[in-house]
Computed example of a mutant assay.
Amino acid sequence: MRAIQITEFGGPEVLRPAELPRPEPGPDEVLIEVSRAGVNYADTHQAENSYLSRSTLPMVPGGEVVGRTPDGRRVVALVGSGGYAEYATAPKAMTWDVPEEIDDVTALAMVVQGASAWVLLRRSTHMAPGESVVVHAAAGGVGSLAVQLAKAWGAGRVIATASSKEKRDLALELGADVAVDAGVEDMKAALIEANEGRRVDVVLEMTGGAVTDQSLHALAPFGRLAFYGMASRRPPTPVQPASLMAHSTTIAGMWLAHVFRLPGDVMRTALDELFALAAEGRLRVVKGGEYGLSEARTAHEELRARRTVGKLVLDPSR
């Protein structure tokens, strides 16, 4: 089968096409003929071995696929690795049926980006109706869905940040009340100004460095910041617990993998709600581009350069 294989860690240049044997599913796994594979920012960390979970070589990258099982079920699945290929195996516990009215790109966007936005708002920050919500990287996969979910769930004011006018315009189109330039020097002041002079209640942050630091300082008493990525590769300043108490603020970390340790099928709950909103037209996936499998390197280059919006996918048939 055609696949992308990594034999050394590094940047996009290590993603190379290869011919590999079709994987064989284990007793608790299912084989999936992949119609589309999702591309996530986490995949760029996987390629350079800087992700939260360590990678081993050689490997086929890609953590999510949508396609059909041998018995004809249409499913979306989290595979950990192995997604950039014509066939992949997935644990049965991490495979979910997809309604036929949900297209491939929407299905893929919901299983990681949509579920991440759902968990960030529902569980990490416990957003309440009427609260102000800051969504950094609001034109990205998670951000574009978080903007819409926050509005659908009654946020009082949604403040988006993005690095270009086009991305800020997209965030406004998706329902943000105001959009802020991500490159502004004083992010704290910009967020407070965007919230009509008030400190903000909730921040969803995945950039790291000064953006995290200044966003934390923009929080209102009992404000919550959920940290779920570090795209800048720069860590924020360490936080002293006493400073949290001084302002009654909360910092939450979120890695979607931990959702599977919770009682009940949280992912099924999240996907049911997300698919329903999408079917009703209340939640729109921004389709950021489709690449052939052999163009995986280009997809990573575009993603790392922040030239993309929304959801990126690979088509294994080309």
Rank of each mutant, 00 (worst) to 15 (best):
A194I: 03
H217F: 03
Y228R: 08
E64Y: 02
R73F: 08
M59I: 01
M59F: 10
G130T: 05
M1Q: 11
G141F: 09
P263D: 09
P236V: 06
S215Y: 05
P23G: 10
L256I: 12
G281F: 08
L145V: 14
R36G: 01
R168Q: 15
K287E: 14
M267K: 12
R74L: 05
T125Y: 04
A115M: 09
A246S: 13
L262F: 03
G156Q: 04
V184E: 13
L145M: 14
A252K: 14
R282I: 00
K165D: 15
H45C: 08
R233D: 03
G197R: 08
V66A: 11
V14T: 12
P99K: 00
A210D: 15
M206E: 09
V105Y: 05
L120I: 01
I251H: 06
D43L: 00
M187C: 08
G83T: 06
G264D: 09
P221T: 02
V158E: 13
H136L: 11
V119F: 13
S53P: 06
F222E: 10
L262E: 14
P91E: 09
E64A: 00
A77C: 02
S144R: 12
R233L: 07
P61T: 05
A146E: 11
R268C: 07
A128R: 15
E29N: 11
Q148W: 12
P58T: 12
L191A: 04
R198I: 00
A176N: 05
T56L: 11
A128T: 15
A3K: 09
P91L: 07
S50H: 02
